[in-house]
Simulated scan of single mutants.
Amino acid sequence: MHDLELEQLDVKTAFLYGKLEEDIYMQQPESFTVSKKENYVCLLKKSLYRLKQSPRQWYKRFDSFMASHDFKRTAKDKGEIRKVKAQLSEEFDMKDLGLAKKIVGMEILRDRKASKLYLSQKGYIEKVLCRFNMQSVKPVSTPLTAYFRLSLALSPQSDDEIKYMSHVPYSSAVGFLITRDGAIRRVYVDFVGDLDRRRSLTVALSTTEAEYTAITEACKEAIWLKRLFSELNEDLQISIVLCDSQSAIFLTKDQMFHERTKHIDVRYHFVRDIIAHGGIVVSKISTHENPADMMTKSLPITKFEHCLDLVGVHC
């Protein structure tokens, strides 16, 4: 939108710069045990890698440095960017990577003429395929075929089948995909999707409740996005959240008590106050134009490709 410059730096041992705000103890490292004090533990004075506090403490350390120099989070002036890099290098041991090309394993592609940025996982996908010897497999057009359902009857039954499946790295492959998508939150709505026990794969007891829960989660993300835009000096007065369930939309606006919805956790009802204040509008969307369907159910190829187009994903 503003054609801002986008450059990247790598801070060496970044987490070690973080300052701890609480007392944290650790066992003495191997080969560094103090003689006659083997049962003692170490009191950490600085942040270390693998601490759950480390990412947050590094961010706070970096943010406080930038704020102390009166910086905001955006810039169009390359001269200012060079100045920032020089100041950062004085404070941290940094490597200048130039134009931003990658972030958490995703390639950053930019078309400045079209004012567009793209994120690509092509490289990572190719690595995963090589890792599981699937470079030459035949591609499929959708994640799941329409009407595909899993059940216990499909699981290995005999000892030979169980032994064979124990060597199939299924869980490992799923882990590779999940770890790369950690920033993605999915609200999975599949009412009575479990064929063996005939119950929902979510905690919802009805499709209306599942959709209502999804609206609440979407509104939380919309609030976060509005804050992000405000940091980019863009004011989003109203955010529109789309839903294809008319009954769920009605529930967001109705303050009355309902016997069928009295069990819904109170944290999901905060969406009513948000909507009442006018910051977010929940609007009906046709099921045929709902891109979320590709995340919640198996689809035919034409509908799946249409959903991809709606969210700007290209294969």
Rank of each mutant, 00 (worst) to 15 (best):
residue 127 K to M: 08
residue 46 K to I: 06
residue 129 L to S: 05
residue 67 A to N: 10
residue 93 D to W: 01
residue 102 K to V: 12
residue 79 G to L: 05
residue 48 L to F: 01
residue 137 V to N: 11
residue 49 Y to V: 07
residue 89 S to E: 10
residue 135 Q to L: 11
residue 80 E to Y: 07
residue 47 S to Q: 05
residue 122 K to L: 15
residue 118 Y to E: 04
residue 63 D to Y: 09
residue 98 G to N: 10
residue 119 L to G: 03
residue 75 A to K: 03
residue 109 L to C: 13
residue 48 L to T: 02
residue 68 S to M: 08
residue 63 D to S: 11
residue 114 A to F: 03
residue 153 A to L: 09
residue 140 V to I: 13
residue 97 L to W: 00
residue 76 K to D: 07
residue 50 R to P: 00
residue 94 M to A: 03
residue 84 V to P: 03
residue 42 C to L: 14
residue 56 R to G: 04
residue 129 L to P: 01
residue 45 K to F: 11
residue 111 D to V: 00
residue 159 D to P: 15
residue 64 S to A: 14
residue 151 S to K: 14
residue 134 M to D: 04
residue 146 A to W: 04
residue 45 K to D: 11
residue 64 S to W: 02
residue 47 S to L: 04
residue 148 F to W: 12
residue 75 A to D: 05
residue 136 S to T: 13
residue 36 K to D: 15
residue 65 F to I: 01
residue 53 Q to E: 12
residue 74 T to V: 09
residue 75 A to F: 09
residue 39 N to R: 08
residue 113 K to D: 14
residue 156 P to K: 09
residue 87 Q to A: 10
residue 118 Y to L: 12
residue 56 R to E: 08
residue 73 R to Q: 07
residue 147 Y to P: 03
residue 111 D to T: 00
residue 66 M to P: 07
residue 77 D to V: 03
residue 80 E to T: 02
residue 134 M to V: 02
residue 77 D to W: 09
residue 90 E to L: 14
residue 133 N to G: 06
residue 56 R to D: 04
residue 162 I to K: 15
residue 161 E to G: 05
residue 159 D to S: 10
residue 115 S to Y: 08
residue 94 M to G: 00
residue 146 A to E: 15
residue 149 R to V: 05
residue 157 Q to D: 15
residue 76 K to Q: 09
residue 38 E to V: 05
residue 58 W to K: 03
residue 61 R to N: 08
residue 65 F to Q: 00
residue 55 P to K: 02
residue 108 I to F: 04
residue 134 M to K: 05
residue 77 D to R: 10
residue 144 L to E: 09
residue 42 C to T: 03
residue 80 E to W: 02
residue 75 A to G: 04
residue 39 N to L: 10
residue 49 Y to L: 07
residue 116 K to Y: 05
residue 62 F to D: 07
residue 111 D to N: 12
residue 130 C to D: 12
residue 56 R to V: 05
residue 76 K to P: 02
residue 115 S to P: 07
residue 66 M to F: 09
residue 120 S to I: 04
residue 109 L to V: 13
residue 162 I to S: 06
residue 74 T to R: 07
residue 122 K to P: 02
